[in-house]
Nucleic acid binder design. Structure first.
Length: 498
RNA sequence: GGCCCCAUGGUCAAGUGGUUAAGACGUCGCGUUCUCAGCGCGGAAUCGAGGGUUCGACUCCCUCUGGGGCUACCA
């Protein structure tokens, strides 16, 4: 580890780990690990009203699940702690710098009520002006201003602290992903709040203080922070601090709405947790997310975290927003599921057990059989492990309905002939016949009756499994219990053929 | 409205002045096969539009159009 590269992921515990956050975390991790730097996690919990119960814990847990680790965090204190802003605030870390700005006259106390602010804003909008904070102490001396403060205090008003924006300045930086960007100070909307009435610092202020104190060298974050950057640069400047390098990554877009992926979009699964429950693999999530807004040199698409780490190059970060492509995620997960079946098998067992198709004990007892069932049922076609349930249910655990179409196959002239021949042949076969034997038996019927294709296979398939389509029939027959199949056949015969 | 960013097929994207414009997902077709899945093969973009610059532009510049982000005592 070197101190040259110190990056951080700074979530606020207002919800569970979101795909967009996971991506920010992943790229920061990649950046840190690729350059042998330090990866810091800082919790930005300055909005107590929005913090949720298990937000922090759940986010960290899901980050771990994704295979990310960190060097400094609330649960792993380093030398720049604490790592929660609420705790840092309690220690007066922000207050110190707020006082400094106040003393230097670079910030001031403002007592305007939210009603006043709303009025001002409404008036400006009505006049077709951009909303812009109106400085209330224009032309006053320090003493006069202090006197006003005292007045307001006497009225019982609580102040916020606003930063006095140097309107004439222009802030510019060379963005790691977007290149040169410059934004005039007057565009930030006027003097902005650095400390709320409840004493908490605001995001744009705390982030600067913390990034500086934690010696963060590179800030990789979402595009949506571009317009915050000038605000933050003002603080660095006012406090005489060096500015870190910024990199603003393109956003992940909801394909349906075309907008930034939002927690309120119900048409897309938003949270890592949800994918985890469906049986997506962490490797697949990393793989997919790592390819959203970033591309490797070659033509391969399947990469492990370790490979991403080796290849990582911040210059290959994309500038354009990327739509979230669920289909591609499914394909990538399929690739990871198939990559190492033995590793996935326990998860598949769990899904089948959870669905109530088999008990845990029974699954263990018949593990070899269940493994075969999973394989034959078509595990190679699933997108996530939970899908295996629907694949194995019929005919291995339950029988489906016999549809009209199936009855037609069964009761046709060919169907009846095939059924009789099959019943005779199958009954005569040993209980442990293998797939080759079943295949040969069916081929034999084909030769004898000169019936082939669907007219041959469907009646047998339907009589034994109640299915008209499914995995290879001979392979299924090997896995099905012969007495049960005979019973199924007898029932079908009694109901439709007699 | 203002400011900022972006623009190669449905999607993710490679490509940094001269290429038959990679690859992947998805999709369509064909093949394998009783069917499904899988697998194999194949089809589909002239690079948002219009101007420039250049012997030559997907690649550079400008304008337009389109999309996105921000515009809180949220982060």
């Amino acid at each position: 580890m070197t101190d040259d590269f110190r990056v951080r992921y700074a979530p606020s515990p207002t919800g569970y780990l979101h795909i967009g956050n996971a991506r920010t975390a992943l790229f920061n991790w990649l950046f840190a690990r690729h350059y042998n730097g330090t990866f810091v996690i800082r919790i930005e919990d300055t909005d107590s009203a929005r913090n949720i119960e298990n937000g922090e814990q759940s986010q960290l847990e899901n980050l771990k699940w994704l295979g990310l680790d960190w060097d400094e965090a609330p649960d792993k204190p380093g030398q720049y702690g604490p790592y929660r802003q609420s705790e840092r605030n309690e220690q007066g870390i922000y207050q110190e710098f707020i006082d400094e700005l106040l003393a230097k006259g670079l910030a001031y106390k403002s007592y305007k009520t939210s009603e006043q602010l709303a009025e001002e804003r409404a008036a400006q909008q009505a006049a077709k002006q951009a909303p812009h904070y109106i400085y209330e102490y224009e032309g006053l001396t320090n003493e006069e201003r202090e006197a006003k403060y005292a007045d307001f205090e006497a009225q019982g008003l609580k102040p916020v602290v606003r930063f006095r924006v140097p309107e004439e300045k222009v802030y510019a930086w060379d963005d790691i992903v977007k290149g040169h960007i410059e934004i005039g100070a007057k565009e930030v909307g006027g003097d902005w709040v650095i400390q709320k009435a409840d004493g908490m610092p605001t995001y744009n202020f705390a982030v600067v203080v913390d990034d500086h104190l934690m010696k963060i060298s590179h800030v990789l974050r979402g595009d949506d922070h571009v317009s915050n950057t000038p605000k933050q640069m003002m603080i660095y400047e006012a406090l005489g601090w060096d500015v870190p390098k910024f990199g603003h990554m393109a956003l992940i877009i909801n394909g349906a709405t075309g907008k930034k992926l939002s927690k309120r979009d119900n048409d897309v699964l938003q949270f890592v947790e949800q994918y985890r429950e469906l049986g997506y693999q962490p490797e697949a999530m990393d793989n997919f997310i790592g390819l959203l807004g970033w591309s490797p040199k070659g033509e391969d698409e399947i990469f492990s975290l370790e490979e991403f780490k080796e290849m990582f190059d911040e210059h290959r970060l994309s500038k354009a927003n990327a739509k979230f492509d669920q289909k591609k995620l499914e394909w990538i997960n399929n690739q990871w599921i198939r990559k190492d079946k033995d590793r996935i098998m326990p998860q598949l067992f769990d899904q089948i057990i959870a669905a109530g198709l088999i008990s845990k004990e029974e699954a263990e007892k018949r593990a070899d059989w269940l493994k075969e069932v999973i394989e034959v049922a078509g595990v190679d076609g699933i997108s996530y492990t939970k899908q295996i349930v629907d694949l194995v249910r019929e005919p291995f655990f339950q029988l489906g309905e016999v549809t009209d179409e199936m009855v037609d196959y069964l009761t046709s002239e060919d169907g009846r002939k095939v059924y009789d021949a099959w019943e005779k042949a199958y009954t005569a076969l040993p209980d442990d016949a293998d797939a080759g034997t079943y295949m040969a038996t069916i081929r034999g019927i084909q030769n004898d009756l000169e019936i082939k294709g669907r007219n041959l296979w469907n009646p047998i398939r339907i009589a034994t499994t109640h299915q008209i389509q499914g995995p290879n029939l001979p392979e299924m027959l090997v896995l099905l219990d012969k007495p049960a199949v005979l019973k199924t056949m007898a029932d079908v015969k009694a109901k439709y053929l007699d």
